[in-house]
Amino acid sequence: MLAFTLQRVFQSIVVLLVVGLVAFSMFRFVGDPIDNMLGQERTDADIERLRGELGLDQPFPIQYGKFLKNAVQGNFGISYRQARPVSTILAERAPATLELAAVSGLFAIFFGVGLGVFTAIRRDGFAANAIMTISLLGVSLPTFLIGILLIYVFAVELGWLPSFGRGDTVKIGGWSTGFLTASGLKAIILPAITLGLYQMTLIMRLVRSEMLEVLRADYIRFARARGLKERAINFRHALKNTLVPVITVTGLQLGAIIAFAIITETVFQWPGVGLLFINAIQFVDIPVMAAYLMLISVMFVGINLIVDLLYFSIDPRLRIDRSAAEG
């Protein structure tokens, strides 16, 4: 297991280095950083001085090394557009995105697994069939249309929920949370559903097909033959055995949630890093783009790593077992 973990960690680092190279190249070659930082009135001496300060006169590998060192320390330079450190801006925006991603992730997992189990157990029921048909439509709907539809129904027509923004937030340390105010909680409902719906559908369909597969397994028949209760069979025996593939997909989907938050945040004008990224693209704010890329890669790679390690805690067959080695 240790060898496996090390190998995974090593692979993750390689991926991050490659992404870092992409981010650095953007930084270095897309637009001239000197151009962007100095105004119209500049002298050759200014340029030379800044070039020296930024280390742009040094060989490429050294510049890359410096970039990585800064990145590890959370220093991504100054936003061209806001003229503030990128790290500060990201730190301000991150709570909004993370809270949104967490709520929609929980929503997707809770309803995805629940409906998946339900549609598998009541395979031929009317409700299960209806859910499956609707889910097919849900997969082909683009996210932003779902968001707009929800806004139209719940904000425009019914007026129950706000259509944009985070509502009131409370600051706890450096973290601004919307979980502690009524308006903050109301504001997160629509964006979280919009963001989580696609993932929920995927998880539901996966859980259903895995459950149907597992319910045919011999050990489920054997569990039935031993007179175990249906609930124990469905949840303790069957559901647990579907978890390995489900966790793989769910883990990757959680990464996707953070990426897809860009779309949802734009629809709902949710003040998170996704909206920041879209604005950065519109105004070619390279440092923000590069920092976002690095940030999201770390999250992706981290999630992948955690997913791999989670297998071990679920499936004993993957563990190196001492008792078998002894016996």
Partner: peptide, 16 residues
Amino acid sequence: IGMVFQDPLTSLNPLL
């Protein structure tokens, strides 16, 4: 009534 199935490799739940 107790029942014994054919394949012991698949009759037991691998995760318990």
